[in-house]
Nucleic acid binder design. Structure first.
Length: 567
RNA sequence: UGGGGUGUCGCCAAGCGGUAAGGCACGGGUCUUUGGAAUCCGCACUCGGAGGUUCGAAUCCUCCCACCCCAGCCA
């Protein structure tokens, strides 16, 4: 079940940490960091990294820093830093006092850059962006040295100072590390480490007009913070030699180890900030917190409990092979925690009126029903029963196929925690549509049992017409129709695979009165249907709006699908 | 076609020379006042392929194949 041992599942990174500890490395200290760039909202792929980094720190009594990698002011914004902090906290992790920003190190980073110049390991290059690209060579051909590569230390120092002073326009000069233009690893071909960007930074304002690049800032920030294990995703593997090059070229507080793992891919969705931001901008979704989004904020609004995300991250493991995790794995984790915790109530999404013809006109029977049959300590609620009820349209069929064992003409079923009813008459409108059922009930079956012990095949959920409350229910489906949305036909992109039916809004739902007091964000199981939560943004006590978090497993749907296939 | 990686069940993933864990999915049984839950059973003679080393190989060696990453003044 749930991982209560406070330890993360074994994986190769944990093994490395354990070996380092055994070898006495870093004086037995473990310090990790989660280093997001504040240029978008966090998604479930980040949750994997958060659980790994914070989980490691927790397990080995170390620390995990939250550090914003804010070296590109053009893309970044405080809105994102606030959302990231909120999401990490919501996931259940605490960075304590260890909240940092790469921008806090700008002065020190600048000093390191000057030192690199003094050691003749960096130079100011005045090639245009296009020329730098041309000089870099290709994957199969080496690059050529920049004509500015041999500037003197003094000249470089002077030029770099003037870059900082704002004497040049964007792109006029850059500072480059002097490494090897012939390296088969392209990232070592004199990478740019500082560029001029006359842009206001969300934290440093206009104090700077030169900003460090990732490769330079990241390893040094790690070192400044005393990080022991710098965990990142596989696409940074080519940058690892560079990570070490800077730390070896300078005198730094410590030399962390960079370890890469495979990023998460989830079926039927996309996990890339670029693509997610596109969905938001295109208005394909209502925003970053649209309950269909794989963002942390979207999942939270949907009603997914943070614990489900944690167990999910634990179960998918951490490895180096590219993979596409089946979304059913996530769905299983969500159902697992909700099954244990969500109180049970009844709601009818597509109502069909039922008249109990032998039930007294104005009588309301107040039944008592458990909020969770397997956890009696969760208490009970009062369930009113009257002459006029509503059941789910799908629970009645005039001409039932063999495997359908719900209500049908002449058939007897149980109303959950209510009575046994038998369908006597089907009322239709002029179009031939079923609009009402006349049934009779067995007064001896109150509560759902019967003295003679006779069995019924089905138990239906229902709601009492007189006391039910109207509600809107939003049914969510996968955002994309294909397991890997990135595989689109020629000339199309991932948006081609968007599911046009990912949201269905049902506005004439009826819920039992107990739900009238449902709190914002509270999660419920609507019996036989699924788990639902009160939408934190749009729901009001007068106008209840529920989000379907996830359906219940539905073996009847499987039967139908199988029958459909046979035909 | 340079360099760096990865290939174990439909999907994740353990395994690190001693004869293939676990989870999801799937199929079946039991139980059931949710066609839910719970529970039981089944589900890789085989580890990308071909050779080789060894008493013994998913694990070691050789070659081959497939896929991913890298040519931002993004991270």
């Amino acid at each position: 079940m749930t991982n209560t041992t406070n330890s993360i599942a074994p994986n190769f990174i944990k093994t490395i940490v354990e070996e380092d500890l055994r070898a006495g490395k870093n004086n037995g200290r473990v310090t990790t960091r989660f280093p997001p760039e504040p240029n978008g909202y966090l998604h479930i792929g980040h949750a994997k990294s958060i659980c790994l980094n914070f989980g490691l720190a927790r397990e080995f009594s170390g620390a995990c820093h939250l550090r914003f990698d804010d070296t590109n002011p053009i893309k970044e914004d405080v809105e994102y830093v606030e959302s990231i902090k909120r999401d990490v906290r919501w996931l259940g992790f605490d960075w304590g006092d260890n909240l940092f920003y790469a921008s806090d190190y700008f002065e020190r980073l600048h000093d390191y850059a000057q030192e690199l110049i003094r050691r003749d390991k960096a130079y100011v290059c005045s090639l245009s962006a296009e020329d730098i690209r041309a000089y870099r060579g290709t994957l199969t051909e080496p690059g050529r040295n920049s004509p500015y590569r041999d500037r003197t230390v003094e000249e470089n120092l002077d030029l770099f100072a003037r870059m900082r002073a704002g004497e040049f326009k964007d792109g006029e000069h850059v500072l480059r590390a002097k490494i090897d233009m012939a390296s088969p690893n392209v990232s070592l071909r004199d990478p740019v480490i500082y560029r001029i960007k006359k842009a206001a930074h969300h934290r440093t304002g206009d104090a700077w007009c030169i900003y460090p690049m990732y490769d330079f800032a990241h390893c040094l920030s790690d070192s400044i913070e005393g990080i022991t294990h710098s965990i990142c995703t596989l696409e940074f593997e080519n940058n690892r030699p560079l990570y070490h090059w800077f730390l070896d070229a300078l005198e730094t507080p410590c030399h962390p180890e960079q370890i890469e793992f495979a990023r998460l891919n989830l079926s039927y969705t996309v996990l890339s900030k670029r693509k997610l931001i596109q969905l938001v901008q295109d208005k394909a979704v209502s925003g970053w917190d649209d309950p269909r989004m794989p963002t942390i904020t979207g999942l939270r609004r949907r009603g997914v409990p943070p614990e489900a995300l944690r167990t999910f991250c634990d179960r998918i493991g951490v490895a180096r092979a590219d993979s596409l995790v089946d979304i059913s794995m996530l769905e299983h984790c969500v159902r697992e925690v909700l099954n244990a915790r969500a109180p049970r109530v009844m709601a009818v999404l597509r109502p069909l009126k039922v008249i109990i013809s032998n039930y007294p006109e104005d009588q309301i029977d107040e039944l008592e029903a458990p909020l969770h049959p397997e956890s009696p300590e969760m208490g009970t609620r009062v369930l009113p029963f009257g002459r006029e009820l509503y059941i789910e349209r799908d629970d009645f069929m005039e001409e039932p196929p063999k495997k359908f064992y719900r209500l049908a003409p002449g058939r007897e079923v149980r109303l959950r925690y209510g009575y046994y009813i038998t369908c006597r008459e089907v009322i239709k409108n002029s179009l031939g549509e079923v609009v009402e059922l006349h049934c009779t009930y067995d007064p001896a079956s109150r509560g759902g049992g019967t003295p003679d012990g006779r069995k019924v095949k089905a138990t239906l959920h229902w709601v009492c017409a007189k006391t039910a409350k109207r509600a809107t229910v939003r049914i969510y489906d996968h955002l994309f129709t294909t397991p890997n949305p990135n595989e689109a036909p020629e000339g199309k992109d991932f948006r081609h695979n968007l599911n046009p039916n990912s949201l269905e809004i049902l506005e004439s739902c009826l819920v039992e009165p107990h739900l009238a007091a449902a709190e914002t964000g509270s999660r419920w199981q609507f019996e036989r249907l699924g788990y639902f939560s009160v939408d934190p943004v749009d729901s009001t006590p007068e106008e209840l709006i529920f989000n379907r978090i996830i359906s219940l497993r539905d073996s009847w749907a499987k039967v139908q699908a199988a029958e459909g296939k046979k035909v």
